[in-house]
Design a protein around this nucleic acid. Structure first.
Length: 126
RNA sequence: UACGCGUGGCGAGGCGGCCGCCGCCCGGUGUCCCGCACCGGGUGGAGGAAAGUCCGAGCACGACAGGGCACGGUGGAGGGUAACACCCUCCGGGCGCAAGCCCAGGGAUAGUGCCACAGAGAACAGACCGCCGAUGGCCCGAGCAAAUCCCGCAAGGGAUGAGUCGAAGGCACAGGCAAGGGUGAAACGGUGCGGUAAGAGCGCACCGCCCCGGUGGCGACAUCGGGGGCACGGUAAACCCCACCGCGUGCAAGGCCAAGCAGCGGCAAGGGCCGGCCCGGCCCACUCGAGCCGCGGGUAGGCCGCUUGAUCCCGUCGGUAACGGCGGGGCCAGAGAAAUGGUCGCCACCGCCGGCGUCCGCUCGUUCAGGGACGAUGGCGGCAACAGAACUCGGCUUACGCCCACGCGUAAACG
RNA sequence: GGGCUCGUGGCGGAACCGGCAGACGCAGGGGACUUAAAAUCCCCCGGGGUUAAUACCCCAUGAGGGUUCGAAUCCCUCCGAGCCCA
């Protein structure tokens, strides 16, 4: 059980990318990192927390498989959102693969965001 | 008990903790109010196939969805239904020992096309092998016999023998036949007896087929009687004919609001619409501003459509049934970058492994040991498969896990 | 969500109003030519069985079923690709 004074691990509408314009803004930064079967795009959003968008096309699998992957990715984001550095709008694109465990998705997500954070900090220094 | 058939049912076994998600309702806080955001509470939240998109509808728009052609679909009968290619009952045919299952199951005497290869012949067919020798012919020659010759006085006898004739026999040239062989998916009814030169519906019996009539049934059809020697190959999931049905497009339909760009061309006694053609009809014009159409350009934001419906449950009545009537009760996902998830525990259940106890129509002379059944028990693993609503229903089809229930059939067995 | 099109050897692509499947091209293998290679020419080229080898037989047009004497072709049901629409 988590006894540290972390904020609540919610994932409501304010934590999601909900329009095509949001997605286009992230894609236009052309900044992504791969991690396992995932490709994560990131753009700083200057809000009080990360936001997440998912892109899982029909090529990934059946509706059941796509649902499964998206649920696990949302759960991974929900748990990790306050331990990830910075505040970014993230878009996670899934390649075709068999669904992994929740733990695996958490590691992939954290690894990708940490790399992206490093990239953006170098951008700000330059 | 085994195998099989049919009908119906269920679709995460139950309970709980923690962290979350999407609607709606109520209260509070923030913002001037609305809306929105957040906090708290309540409540609802995937399927039997939600799937494939194979049919049928509702609904929406295209005048008011109308007639004909074209095109497409359906095809035993009667019923059910909003409708159907679905369902029910029945009829006919086929398969199965049976319970049962399957059938695009109208028309091939309206017409057209096709039937490769093989084969003699393939659609008012045909004669390769074969069968026949009745008829004609040829050979042959039992008989008759003109004529000639020889012997004899003569009667007469003998030889040759045109011809006549066709008894017996031969040939198979003409001809007859289509039974058998052979070819083929299919060869112009089948079996048997008679009949014949050989054969053949040539005749007869039975079966099949066709025609007519009676009876039963709403009907598909069944059945009985009479007649016809058979004239009528298959294919319509080939064109087609008949009967019936179908206007087109699909919620990305369509309506409203906001934002935004860039126009060009066509139309006036004409233009547009019912997306193919004709009819029939409608709208707008003839008034100088719009309208409509075509090409091009722009926007992919919000609201409505959007879930109360041929609805579900219970009871009752009608009907063989599908289903329908009546009465009572319920409201059961409505997102739009797409919600039902994650994790932990207890109890059931299943599989594997371990030891304990009891029992034994088992192996065995007995013990040990092994095996089996039952009971409680410890550990590990599993607790799902097919699969995710996207306008909504009715079906079909396909995928999948059961178990359960019920009704049957066949075979074996009954210590 | 809705509408439509197409599946034939390793690849492209014929045969599609039923009648010998795989024409033709590319790739591949063998041979000839050459010192060698390229180019050119000739032959082979789906799988299995059988055989010393040919011959021969069976299975093959995405899968399964149906109609037909006969199906790549006609009909039905699945499977898999691709395209279009606000």
């Amino acid at each position: 059980m988590n006894s540290s004074p972390t904020p609540r691990l919610t994932f409501g509408k304010q934590r999601r990318l909900r329009s095509g314009a949001d997605f286009q803004r992230v894609y236009r930064q052309r900044t992504s990192r791969n991690a396992g079967p995932l490709r994560v795009y990131a753009a700083p959003n200057h809000l009080d927390g990360h936001r997440l968008g998912l892109s899982v096309s029909r090529r990934v699998g059946s509706a059941v498989v796509r649902n499964r992957i998206k649920r696990l990715l949302r759960e991974a984001f929900r748990i990790e959102q306050h331990t990830l550095p910075g505040t970014y709008d993230l878009v996670v694109v899934s390649h075709r693969h068999e669904p992994l465990t929740l733990e695996a998705y958490r590691q992939h997500l954290r690894q990708a965001v940490e790399r992206l954070h490093g990239h953006w900090r170098k951008q700000e220094e330059d």
